[in-house]
Amino acid sequence: MTLHNLDNLYRQAVMEHAKYPHHHAPVTEKDKHQIQKFNPTCGDMISLAVTVDDDRIIDCHFDGDGCAIAIASCSMMTDIMIGKTISQSQELMRMFSAMTMGENINFDAIGEAQLLAGVTKFPTRIKCATLSWHALDDLLAHY
């Protein structure tokens, strides 16, 4: 069996985030700015909420159902986004998206999310990795 190829995708840190996601809390009516994003090919769904104060993200949390990649990616994203200004976060989203397309970026800027670079070798899974990032992008666009 050659399941070790999977190590490119399911790094230990990725699985840690998938099993014990950060900022994973119910998104409720109290969250004024929230969005639901679906991955129509598989039915995965993520609800994401943000709170912005004086142009800076002070909270970002999520819930929903997804594969290991979708959940880990969202968890890692919330880690790096909290504390960033809206324009900084938009730049990070652009960088993450470029990374999933196989481009070279300043990997350290996106923190642990750089561990998801292996997804470029699994083209059918790129949508799983980018689901929450698109959700945040849409949410901030309407903030």
């Binding site: 069996m1 050659t2 399941l3 190829n5 999977l6 995708l9 399911y10 090919t41 598989c42 039915g43 995965d44 997804g66 594969c67 290991a68 990649i69 699994f122 059918t124 899974r125 799983c128």
Partner: peptide, 20 residues
Amino acid sequence: HAHDVATALDQEGIAVRAGH
């Protein structure tokens, strides 16, 4: 998750469907 199962099976040349 079903998607992770399908990706892993694919590494072994096994094509299945995962999702809804």
